[in-house]
Nucleic acid binder design. Structure first.
Length: 207
DNA sequence: GGCCAGGACACCA
DNA sequence: TGGTGTCATGGC
């Protein structure tokens, strides 16, 4: 359990940094995302206003290590423009809405899909919602807890119905799933699942 | 040199 | 509505 202890996942220094990271990490490794965020910080542009005043081409150049830089520059521009126009770039105003309203709002923004929206809600707004990513799907499919072709919503419901509604729990559980998912990529036995059972045994008793 | 990583969107049948 | 193409870096 020690090696899978508290993961301190999503190392963003601010909610806005988490939001930017959530978009940059789409189909990308975190190492590239870290470099892109470092570039934004160095350019003093890691803020809603900072990104808004940055030309899209320059923004794309700065986030180049995160791959798909042109597409993601467009998405980040859409995010900060929406934030400015709808919430005066005030994240407190955005996050004080109830979870489902916040989710609908985020999903209306170009470039934010279900996983990205849920990541923002959990890690930036710190509201209890379960993030379903490729690793999570891979693991529960391997464990035959759900059908292979399960939808995002159904997969999310599986965890929500079996876990306490606790932000820290969802945060830690998701982090552990990603760590486990990386292990599952290699031909390694699934004894790691004991870590997840340790946190919430009920999730694994429901088959 | 090839594969793949913490997705989302546009387009088409 | 579901399947497919596109985006397009960097580490291993």
């Amino acid at each position: 359990m020690a090696c899978y202890g508290p993961q301190h996942w999503w190392p963003g220094e601010s909610p806005f940094e988490v939001m930017v990271g959530a978009i940059l990490t789409q189909q990308a490794s975190w190492t590239g995302v870290e470099k892109a965020i470092a570039n934004l910080k160095a350019a003093n542009a890691l803020s809603p206003e900072g990104l808004r005043r940055l030309p899209e081409s320059e923004l794309a150049r700065l986030i180049r290590p995160a791959i798909y830089h042109n597409a993601k520059a467009k998405k980040l521009k859409a995010l900060v423009n929406w934030l400015g126009e709808s919430y005066g770039a005030d994240l407190t105003r955005l996050f004080k809405q109830d979870t489902q309203t916040l989710r609908r709002e985020l999903l209306s923004v170009y470039g934010i899909g279900e996983e990205t929206a849920d990541s923002i809600i959990l890690y930036a707004a710190e509201k209890p919602i379960f993030v379903i990513d490729a690793y999570t799907r891979r693991i529960i499919a391997r464990l035959e807890l759900v059908p292979d072709n399960i939808s995002y919503h159904a997969c999310q419901s599986f965890f929500v119905s079996n876990l306490p509604q606790d932000t820290r729990m969802f945060n830690e559980y998701h982090a552990l799933l990603v760590q486990l998912g990386k292990s599952v990529c290699r031909p390694r036995p699934l004894h790691h699942e004991c870590c997840l059972k340790d946190i919430c045994p009920t999730a694994f008793s429901a088959e």
